[in-house]
Design a protein around this nucleic acid. Structure first.
Lengths: 332, 332
DNA sequence: GTGAAAGCGCTAACAA
DNA sequence: TTGTTAGCGCTTTCAC
């Protein structure tokens, strides 16, 4: 492995100057700069990231914790995060916690031990737990769709209340009166809670009384949508279903199949988040912010912090947009 | 951050000895050892992994590349890998390449730059490409279900031929004569190719002529199963479908739904790999090796290599086992 | 069984 | 604008 020292002896230019060139220090004569690059290329020099990190104190790694990467909500956000981070020379390390709070804690402390440069936790942990974990780690963090009080952090938020509201409103506009809501476990998912509030508000604003028996809670995956479906089908009055997220909607559809119900024909379904591209042609309405943009923004914030920006922390909200593919409307 | 030096001054024991204790060097008096641990705990000392890595030359990170983590085949294997690696103090870094060979190459070279300790590529790249990438990286690698000629590496293989054979045989045993096969793109997936051969062999062994028009190729995800379904439904003779993997089977089921076909009732479906736990009660037959065990074995091999084992490289084969949940057989 | 000293490859403060 | 020097925190000879 060729090191700075090797280039020093080959070129006669000191390590410091070479280091300056690599790190784009402006205080190097143009001529020297070019000569250095020549040698770097000729000798195929690659800086030793670990050695650099020892001096700097951190590795250019960023921990991204997601509840469940199979969940499109996370997957799309991660896509945005990855793009920005790798462009900036950071290596995103994405972990699936499966909403296991203990695992999330372990990961966060691992990030500390490994001297990660930053962390973007989109965890299942509630705010208090997360705050506690984050207190003990000194690296910058940016939150996505979390609500934290004690620590001052940059945050990027999608308008989840709006998503819930719009998703429910769509069903109301289609004439439904008895609308079920498949929700998350509200103590563990703030996002899900807000969407649920949006659903409730939409109903109330349109003169429909919120019936707690129409709100079914699960843990946001296919399996729990599957379980909830059983209960929904017991109530013949329900005609519209507002699913807190896409995966639960999937579970619903799957269970429907096993009992001979074709959800997308017999019911009106809308989701409080963007559906995967592949499903955009289905008769599923959905509302939500642009997740990839959210990811990009969050990663951008993080990099600023890593680079020691002293700007005051900020929160940015991304509005929800409702999407419905009309070409399938006729299926109804 | 408390360092060795701090413990040295606090305890009066030299850094070297403390380092020895941490690294379980037997040449330390029991008494000293205990005293050192006392200080380590009291002062809450955590070794600086980056500093250690600079001396050692590698970071305790292991790169795991998978084609598509949403694919249960990879997900289960990764579960096994993660268990073993984290028990041994390594941090697995899992990347989704989405079968993008260029991305895989970038990841492998990133692993080199970051001085990863090892790599487990379960990539979409074909053997030649992979070999080339692996040549340029000096860290240990263990292959899963790959076939490589030029380099000598440890390998863990599932019996994919057997899986394909058993999956198809199941349908034959159920009386089907016209059995479609949903396969992968054979030049990019060796696994898929072997399963396809198994399917062909099962047919031939049972006096059924292989009809190339019954083999439909896609790229192993839901979307392509969805597309292939359209073609399968055009052929009214087909009664059994042998899906190369589970995701394509999913796509088939989904498309069936949109045209009013209930695959699991109207057809007999079997997959050449284990299905996700959640689907184990469906009327889907499946055959394949225990993926988590494969992952564990691969990680175990890798750790041995990292620790500089000089044993000759080895290949291990995991046999496929057929599973079929009889309690749903009556649905037929 | 233990400590002193060298050095991993880099950056950064200080001199020149 | 450049070079010299001093570390970053650890492991690893080499003496003792």
């Amino acid at each position: 492995m060729v090191t700075l020292k090797d280039i020093e002896s080959a070129s006669g230019i000191s390590k410091s100057t070479i280091s300056r060139v690599i790190n784009n220090d402006p205080n190097v004569k143009q001529e020297t700069r070019e000569k250095v690059w020549e040698y770097i290329k000729k000798m195929n020099y690659k800086p030793n990231i670990v050695a650099r990190s020892m001096v700097k104190g951190t590795l250019p790694l960023v921990l991204v914790i997601v509840g469940d990467i199979q969940n499109n909500y996370f997957a799309r956000t991660v896509t945005g995060i990855e793009k920005v981070l790798s462009d900036e020379g950071y290596m995103p390390v994405v972990y699936n916690s499966m909403y296991d709070v203990e695992k999330e804690k372990r990961l966060i402390s691992m990030a500390r031990d490994f001297k990660f440069a930053g962390i973007i936790p989109m965890t299942g942990a509630n705010s208090a737990e997360l705050e506690e974990s984050l207190m003990n780690i000194s690296c910058p963090a940016v939150l996505i769709n979390k609500d934290i009080r004690k620590i001052q952090l940059d945050e990027v938020l999608g308008d989840d209340f709006g998503s819930g509201y719009m998703a429910a409103k769509h069903l109301i506009d289609n004439g439904h009166k008895c609308i079920a809501h498949m929700s998350g476990n509200s103590e563990s998912s703030a996002v899900s809670k807000k969407r649920e509030s949006g659903y409730c508000a939409a109903l109330e604003d349109n003169g429909i009384k919120v019936d707690k028996n129409l709100i079914f809670r699960g843990n946001l995956d296919i399996k729990s949508g599957y379980e909830i479906a059983k209960k929904i089908f017991e109530n013949p009055n329900i005609t519209g279903i507002c699913s807190n997220n896409f995966l639960m909607g999937m579970g619903l559809i799957r269970y429907g199949r096993t009992v001979g119900k074709h959800i997308l024909r017999d019911y009106d379904l809308s989701c409080c988040e963007c559906v995967p591209e592949m499903y955009e042609n289905e008769r599923i309405a959905y509302a939500g912010p642009d997740l990839e943009e959210i990811g990009k923004k969050a990663a951008g914030f993080l990099i600023k912090r890593i680079k020691n920006s002293k700007e005051p922390q900020q929160k940015i909200y991304f509005a929800a947009t409702k999407v419905y593919n009309p070409k399938n409307k006729s299926n109804k």
